[in-house]
């Protein structure tokens, strides 16, 4: 197991490095002069020159990369061209908000998704099964920002039950996390259903039943324990869906998270902040994937010997 973890950690290093390089080139690949783009259309020649010097855009590319890496290791991602604040503090004040939103959505999705999936599988071809899977397919097809707007319309504008936008209280968290949880819930419930169905066909389930175990014990102790492995992977894979969805959800509900900061910064051409936000999200995503792989190996010893 230790060997496996070390191997996976080592494999993540080149990917991490690749991501850093890509983020470095983000600004430099933009068509046109990045200094002019960042300074804005009305900027004077002196202002453009200042940005060029500040970002070391006047240096050769390999020196720029060296400096970028050196600063990165020291946790220095430069300063926002809008607020002049250090990028690290800008993204770190926003990151917890995104994390809360994502974790709440993930908790809802796992709880609802796994429960629905198990019931659907146990009662295969029942009305519940058909209805749940139909709703799940609609959930997958639903644009998260549209669902967000509809929830806002119904629960905030029409019923006046919950705040339409903003943050601060737990009430603000409800609508955005439901909107964000929809797609992962649908995917997890479909995966759980097919995984449980697969396991229910196995001989050891027949054995468990024939030795007179109650159906609940068969499902929970024997079926679910084995069916959960592919479900863990799918839950982990939803981290990506959640991040993409979070950008949109934050924008709908004016949630002060990293995704909205990133989009606002792209629109304002505040590239240092965009780079910081992208880098942080990608690193988190890589580590979540790593964690899923390791958990997977922990639950299923067969993986380790591949």
């Amino acid at each position: 197991m230790t060997n496996y973890v070390i191997k996976r950690l080592l494999l993540a290093v080149p990917v991490l490095f690749g991501v850093v390089i890509l983020v470095f080139f983000m600004v430099r690949l933009t068509p046109g002069d990045p200094a002019v783009i960042m300074a804005g259309e009305q900027a004077s020649e002196a202002e453009i020159e200042l940005i060029r010097v500040q970002l070391k855009l006047d240096q050769p590319l390999h020196i720029q990369l060296g400096l970028f890496l050196e600063n990165l290791i020291q946790g220095d991602l430069g300063r926002s061209t809008r607020s002049r604040a250090p990028v690290t503090s800008e993204i770190m004040t926003r990151f917890p908000n995104t994390l809360i939103l994502m974790l709440t959505a993930m908790a809802i999705a796992t709880l609802v998704g796994v429960t629905t999936g198990v019931i659907s599988a146990v009662k295969q071809y029942s009305f519940f099964d058909a209805a749940a899977m139909f709703v799940a397919l609609i959930g997958i097809s639903m644009p998260v920002f549209w669902l967000g707007l509809l929830l806002m319309l119904y629960f905030s504008v029409n019923l006046g039950l919950l705040p339409a936008a903003g943050s601060g209280t737990w009430k603000h968290l409800i609508l955005p996390s439901i909107a964000l949880a929809t797609v992962p819930t649908a995917i997890i419930s479909r995966m759980t259903r097919s995984s449980v169905l697969e396991v229910l066909r196995q001989d050891y389930i027949r054995t468990a039943r024939s030795k007179g175990l109650r159906e609940n014990a068969v499902i929970i102790q024997h079926a679910l324990k084995n069916a959960i492995i592919p479900v863990i992977t799918v839950v982990g894979l939803q981290a990506g869906t959640l991040m993409g969805g979070a950008v949109l959800t934050e924008s709908v509900f004016n949630w002060p998270g990293l995704g909205r900061l990133m989009v606002d910064s792209i629109l304002a051409r505040d590239y240092p902040v965009v780079q910081g936000a992208v880098l942080l999200l990608a690193v988190v995503f890589i580590f979540v994937n790593l964690l899923v792989d390791i958990l997977y190996a922990l639950f299923d010893p067969r993986i380790r010997y591949d």
């Binding site: 080149p14 990917v15 890509l22 983000m26 933009t30 990506g240 792209i266 965009v274 990608a282 995503f285």
Partner: peptide, 25 residues
């Protein structure tokens, strides 16, 4: 495969946003 790994290191929607911010909106 390593190149694909790097692309897959970004959630799909995030990568699309990154690329649009490079190419122009």
């Amino acid at each position: 495969q390593r190149l694909m790994d790097i692309m897959l290191a970004f959630p799909a929607m995030l990568l699309a946003i990154v690329l649009v911010s490079i190419l122009g909106k």
